[in-house]
Amino acid sequence: MSSATFAERVAVEPEVTPSAGQDRWEGAWPRTREEFSRFVDVFQDRLVWFAFRKLGNRSEAEEAVQEVFLRAYRHQDARGNVARVSSYLYRMASNACNDVLRKRGRAALTLDLSKAENIADPRAQAGEHVAALDELKRIETLLARLPRRQAEAVRLRILDELSFAEIAEVLGCSLGTAKSRFRHGLSKLQALLELEREN
């Protein structure tokens, strides 16, 4: 019989990512129209969320992701040898978001959420949009206090629900480094959250 309490046992269950039940793309770059259609279906929500948290604007996020899919389709021939499709796609999406930010004329390539209301999308449902932005603002305020690389590993793992193998490829580092950045980032985050609770 375990000496841990029921609450403790629940707490120590291994990570269950909220989207774990959703389809994941394990195959190669799509080669047929049918494969491409499923490819869009599998990735569209994740990429729009990824772009939204970088841009703070739903229609811009959708436009960026649409462009990513179209590039993926048009130039699939050049990507036949991509080892892990998902991380390559996130890198494409990240670049597309950077293009949008550059066009906006921002010096920084990350979203300043304090200004996000100014660029809020009038087409988005107000409640959903505001709630998501408010929550992101709180999260980003915390993550902004972590070293940049550690914060990015935490974002990709928790906000974007990528595996450590995917994170390593998106960040262009080894698997061990990706895990290490996450572990150190999470440790600092623990301290910050405790401080937040105390205050």
Binding site: P18, Q44, D45, W49, E128, A132, E135, I139, L143, L159
Partner: peptide
């Protein structure tokens, strides 16, 4: 830091 509201 896990978001409860997500935009899809």
């Amino acid at each position: 830091v896990r978001p409860k509201h997500r935009i899809g």
